[in-house]
Design a protein around this nucleic acid. Sequence first.
DNA 1: CTTGATAGATTGAATGTTCAAGCCAGACGG
DNA 2: CCGTCTGGCTTGAACATTCAATCTATCAAG
Lengths: 163, 163
Amino acid sequence: MAQSTPPPWLDDQERRTWLALITVVTMLPSALDAQLAPGSDINYFEYTVMAGLSEQPDRTLQMKHLALFANGSLSRLSHAMTRLEQRGWVRRGKDPTNGRLTVATLTDEGYDHIVSAAPSHVSEVRRMVFDPLTPAQISALEEIASRIAAALGAPDDPFGPIP
Amino acid sequence: MAQSTPPPWLDDQERRTWLALITVVTMLPSALDAQLAPGSDINYFEYTVMAGLSEQPDRTLQMKHLALFANGSLSRLSHAMTRLEQRGWVRRGKDPTNGRLTVATLTDEGYDHIVSAAPSHVSEVRRMVFDPLTPAQISALEEIASRIAAALGAPDDPFGPIP
DNA sequence: CTTGATAGATTGAATGTTCAAGCCAGACGG
DNA sequence: CCGTCTGGCTTGAACATTCAATCTATCAAG
């Protein structure tokens, strides 16, 4: 009985799709950084961190959950926090209820800064991603990206279980 | 007459889509690197460079075109070539017909190496991207990613005009 | 010719990310 | 209690990428 072995190479359709996807995957991050840096002096990862905090009660979140939300390692977040802390946009402190947890807080200055950075950032996202797509394609993209994200091992809820 | 101003914020649907897309965009590169590094000692960018060369006549291409194909800057490529050259997988030389062009060539050792790295790489791409999707979704993704890539300013033909 | 301008490519310094090691507080078992 | 273990976080060094400066070969103009 012939074992059905997984098809080894990509066919033409898959090849074209892969090429287009990988182009987006490599160009989108630099495009986001390029838009944020001139006016706001932050990169996209730092933007995500601050935006994540701004939506939390007390604009505060534990490092671990923040890292998960921003799709980054704890180490990367820690370094980023050091930079943001030096600029006074963010603050770290021990969780009073549990001394081994660290919580990150967005300062007022940080809040002002992210609020001023947001509009042009959002409109750039819109221009690059949503404007070129039809409503049906946007809906299709949600499902497609979710499936790939799942195959990559992404957690279902970006904030994870917050006890 | 009310000017139709561009909608400032993302609605729920767009938000979910953006979240899923950005998760893919941030996780896919590290997943590709993680798969390649252990067995092959290269990152995805270096893989793309060598794979691109392997498909050219004489396994040779000019630096500029190679950079375009690999979605990277000339500087990034130059640094990568230095690393690959030190391992003997690639070679640089001046184009005899035009002394200010540099051509990159994949060596036999480089060819062997990329050939041995390819199967597991491709099957990982398949597992992460194509297996989770239906044929209709793959086809939709091609169009969607192409449109976004165009909005990001990607050239139509990844090899560009090669004179 | 000679000069200037420009495209292709390289280089080194600055910046950001990853990786591995280490630190500290609390939980757990004796 | 006391020691060990573990999870959360930080740190510094190694590595890759970006950015700006530089170099070189060609081309165009005078």
